[in-house]
Amino acid sequence: MTWTRIRILLVATAILWPSLLSCSGVFAQQSKIGNLTGQAKRGKELYGRYCVGCHGSRGDGEGENAAYLNPKPRDFTMGLFKCRSTPSGSIPLDSDLFDTVGRGIDTTGMPRWLPLTPQNRADLVAYVKTFSGRFVEEKPDKPVDIATETPVTPESIQRGSEVYQSLKCFECHGEKGRGDGPSASSLRDSKENPIVPYDFTIGTRFKCGESDRDLYRIFMTGLDGTPMPSYVNWVTPAQAWDLVHYLRTLQADYGEKSKTADHKGLIARR
């Protein structure tokens, strides 16, 4: 009798196995960042210690601290990520997730995990990927090219302001980049939570980096899961750099302000 039971179980497992493999993504167990290989098994332990309070044990963003946070901790089961080098609609590269974990997300509850070693972060990335089947079913698209920066000149800034107008960034970000455009109030993220466009004049770090190249990448790839769209189809590399140069002028005393701005931004957004 027990033997038949075992046999039944074996057969059942054999049936179950492929579906688990193909659907749940439990077996996307690794991450690769340069020479580092992250293992989900190790990542799981770290996740239980550092991430579970916000992102939840199921990775659905329903950790015990979620109620106190705005924006909400990311629901990893949706497989949507803001900070990507890949085009809109594509999963991110492992290195994108790795960079995000190290960089944190300024103006939100997502801390910078610099105290963790690179190996730790690679392991965490491998584990975070297991929550969404997208990492099993899909391959990331080729990253968006970032052309060499053109010189910052008054002409470039002027052209950039025309690009800002013609691409209608002001619809959401406002004429002066204050995040108060005519469409700003109707915006929702992919979980139907209200979301505000970035206010350039506060001068906080962007969620997805702070360099000029980061800024270029942000509007070219868009922030998936949010209303911030991807402009890669609409501008030439030269126009994109003009736009970067112009956006920097909106961040009034960018550089000086940024020392205290992180703090201010936090207050402004709560």
């Binding site: 085009p87 809109s88 609609g89 691409l167 469409s183 209303p227 769209p229 991807s230 609409w234």
Partner: peptide
């Protein structure tokens, strides 16, 4: 006027249409 096509479900692309009459394939 500006439109953006924000997809949810089996695709998650988010594409703006600042200019008229240009096809964007996704």
């Amino acid at each position: 006027v500006l439109h953006t096509i924000h997809m949810a479900g089996a695709a998650s692309n988010n594409i703006p249409f600042p200019f008229q009459n240009q096809y964007i394939p996704i």
